[in-house]
């Protein structure tokens, strides 16, 4: 089989892969920052806190990422005068911004759900021990509940990161030249679909399993302190 087209395109595919990784990491980081307060709000007993968190998580987990992406990228156009007035329209004109914003909102909702489960799974006794020495509120969350919950959430979070990595391929639909975007452009010109899509798929595979390998190592290192098994292992489908 003639693979010249694949070798020729490899540098550009890899360039696309860099954008894929960049979008993934930026969204993951921003999503995690957003997920922590959302998860805590979701677990609050106050209606004003848990209801918005619940609604947000339900909407972003209950609708396809593609719709969310189109809502932000195309849908924002419907509010152009308003966004212009607020001085943010120049942001929404950028596909990159819309992609990162949508992916952030999306992964934050899934991550918040993972964190919620992990926070619930923090042993009651350890929380009581913290209360018994006078810890409460934010201090209790910051020092005892969250550090413990993060460790419990790690396997499920690794899965989420992998799903997000793959979900970034949708940004090619709003014209970004990520790995999928580059492959689609080359296919459109060369009419060699299967070779290029297989090549792109293989690059995704390599990235995915390198990432999984690294994070399993990290998990092992971080879990040196415990013998019990973490919650929500591999295999739980949480795609878009």
């Amino acid at each position: 089989m003639d693979l010249a087209i694949v070798w020729e395109s490899l540098p550009r595919l890899l360039e696309g892969a860099v954008l894929t990784l960049e979008i993934t990491f930026v969204s993951l980081l921003a999503g995690l920052c957003l997920a922590v307060p959302v998860a805590i709000a979701r677990l609050s007993h106050r209606r004003i806190l848990w209801m918005p968190a619940y609604g947000y998580m339900l909407y972003f987990r209950g609708t396809p990422l593609l719709v969310q992406l189109f809502l932000v990228y195309y849908g924002s156009g419907q509010f152009q005068p308003l966004l212009d007035q607020a001085g943010v329209w120049f942001l929404f004109r950028e596909a990159y911004f819309c992609a990162v914003l949508t992916l952030t909102l999306n992964t934050a909702a899934y991550t918040a759900e993972i964190l919620r489960g992990a926070i619930i799974a923090v042993p009651r006794g350890e929380i009581e021990a913290a209360r018994s020495v006078g810890m409460s509120g934010l201090l209790l969350y910051r020092r005892i509940i969250l550090p413990k919950a993060f460790r419990l959430a790690l396997p499920a979070y690794t899965n989420e990161a992998v799903f997000l990595l793959q979900a970034t391929s949708l940004v090619s639909i709003i014209t970004l030249l990520d790995l999928t975007g580059v492959a689609r452009i080359i296919v459109a010109r060369s009419f060699e679909p299967y070779k290029l899509y297989i090549a792109a798929g293989l690059i995704y595979l390599v990235i995915t399993y390198t990432f999984v390998l690294v994070s399993r190592r990290l998990e092992l290192r971080l879990s040196g302190h415990r013998r019990e098994q973490p919650v929500g292992g591999v295999g739980s489908a949480s795609g878009r």
Partner: peptide, 24 residues
């Protein structure tokens, strides 16, 4: 609640199942 936190610092508690913080 702040009084409770303060009082709790003056009462040491030892639990049946130890309840050490496992991540520390």
């Amino acid at each position: 609640p702040r009084q409770v936190d303060r009082i709790r610092t003056r009462l040491g508690m030892v639990f049946q199942r130890f309840n050490l913080w496992s991540h520390m």
